[in-house]
Design a protein around this nucleic acid. Sequence first.
DNA 1: CGCTGCCTGGAGCGATCGCTCTAGTAGTTT
DNA 2: AAACTACTAGAGCGATCGCTCCAGGCAGCG
Lengths: 194, 194
Amino acid sequence: MRGRDTRAELVQTMAGLLRAQGYTATGRAQLLAESGVSNGSLYHHFPGGMEEVAEVALEASGCFVADALREALDGAPNAGAGVARFLDIAQEAAIDEQCVGCPVAPTALESPIISPRLRAVAARCFDQWEALIAARLRADGWPEDSLSTAASAALALIEGALLLARVSGQLSHLAHAKHAALTLLAAPPAQDDS
Amino acid sequence: MRGRDTRAELVQTMAGLLRAQGYTATGRAQLLAESGVSNGSLYHHFPGGMEEVAEVALEASGCFVADALREALDGAPNAGAGVARFLDIAQEAAIDEQCVGCPVAPTALESPIISPRLRAVAARCFDQWEALIAARLRADGWPEDSLSTAASAALALIEGALLLARVSGQLSHLAHAKHAALTLLAAPPAQDDS
DNA sequence: CGCTGCCTGGAGCGATCGCTCTAGTAGTTT
DNA sequence: AAACTACTAGAGCGATCGCTCCAGGCAGCG
């Protein structure tokens, strides 16, 4: 294995570990063992060490989720249906991969004290996702001053449901959130045209 | 400091650290330094070591949140207003203590792989909170078969909002969730009386 | 007072942490 | 073929990890 492959393998493996157990719990030895990369290669591709790998991996996970979310929103009649569709995809993926939950959340929650840089990356991910939902709401005709409120709540619903599903092991939380999202984002609120 | 005080101090300090950075990131040295307890005392009161302290601390945090949630729900006209009130309390506490977020979530997210016992405690916390909301919905006259769906979604909304607020540093996420909770739990759905 | 048992303080253990450094290999260039 | 660059393998570093163990202090009771 040489060049780009090695780097990509590290990022991919790190992303999986971050999703499963977060940043601090992921030791260098585990990353090397699961990726099959040697210690020297790690520090060649990522002079910044573990933190740099985590940064890149988190960024990659953020983009991956953003793509899935964008696709779900685009292929649905409205934002509510799009969020519901996204939750369906998350559920299917959970069954396939035996792994539930947001790939960013575990790292995000411990990051504020552990690593400001990781916190910043995680915050950017969430902002991006919220912006995607807000854009779809705007396209649905939602009034401008209600966009961020509704989008933030929808994202909170998604993240919370993924959290509950992971900890409890019950995927039904995703279905419940799906139902709530459909209710919450079904139609724009009464227009407050000034 | 002797006896009960030492034990309580350990639990209290551990609860704070778990909230701020989760389980794996909390080292034994940090716990001892911040609590002012010596290493010998730790293993006298908690023969099970760090994991046992974390277990007890997580349990304590769960009860603390449950009390606050119960109080908020009891003192409100309906479940939606109760959840909104709880989010207000969380926001005030965040401003006072300079610390946002659920005290259980960070540990909960890393627990499934790290420690099955911590996962179980966290799951019990979430179950308990969801049950509190469900009980209030029942008292509001919600149909029995919609209770768990609505309560699960409400809890997801709370947890998600606390997560977003912590990572972004923007307390406004709590206000957005509050608005959504009021909408979502305002009135029981159309009765499906069979 | 002296004895007993709970509790504390701290030295020290092996294991593991993230990381540095160097020797060596593979691929490209000239 | 020689020189050069890109990359890899792995030994080894100091620091820190969670934990064990024991000597000593400090009640409460005779």
